[in-house]
């Protein structure tokens, strides 16, 4: 018989996974709030979750949605004038700056690529599960992830002046 394990088991098993997802979209400063909202929402819904639910996919997906919502809210607040995400000011020398820059690049990916990259490479979900959230086939999810990685590479290679720690 399937039983519902203590919620604490889920926090221990999937806490890092959800944090990676939130940080990839939001950067380390705002990831805490999204992580917390994710697990509170999950705790609220947990008693009604089917006993055979896949906890990794369930939590990673809630985390991804919470993070994207927070990212969109932040973008709305922060940009009265339109600024392209890759033109943000240098974060050289700030704590967590490398994380921030990388997360900024992930956040700036087109929706489908960002979802596929985050859920596959950072939440470790197989493409079959990424496809459930993305809609479409696992093969399409795989393509979205590899397109996303290619785009990240190009973006990160371009503005050498904002790369972390590099002296002129």
């Amino acid at each position: 018989m399937m039983t519902t394990p203590p919620f604490d088991d889920l926090v221990r098993a999937h806490g890092a996974r959800v944090w990676r997802v939130c940080r990839a979209v939001l950067g380390p400063a705002d990831a805490d709030d999204a992580w917390s909202e994710t697990f509170l929402a999950a705790l609220r819904a947990y008693p009604d979750l089917p006993a055979d639910a896949d906890h990794a996919a369930w939590l990673a997906t809630i985390g991804y949605r919470k993070a994207v919502d927070a990212y969109r809210a932040r973008t709305r607040r922060a940009t009265p004038t339109e600024v392209a995400p890759d033109e943000h000011v240098s974060t050289l020398g700030q704590p967590g700056a490398a994380d921030d820059e990388l997360a900024g690049a992930v956040a700036a990916l087109p929706d489908k690529q960002r979802l596929a990259v985050t859920l596959h490479y950072l939440a470790d979900l197989p493409y079959a599960q990424v496809a459930v959230e993305l809609g479409g086939t696992p093969e399409a999810a795989r393509r979205a992830a590899s397109d996303g990685i290619r785009r990240l590479r190009t973006r990160l290679a371009k503005p050498a002046t904002t790369r972390s720690g590099a002296l002129p």
Partner: peptide, 8 residues
């Protein structure tokens, strides 16, 4: 991908 290892 190596680009993402920091984020893991």
């Amino acid at each position: 991908p190596t680009e993402l290892t920091e984020l893991r």
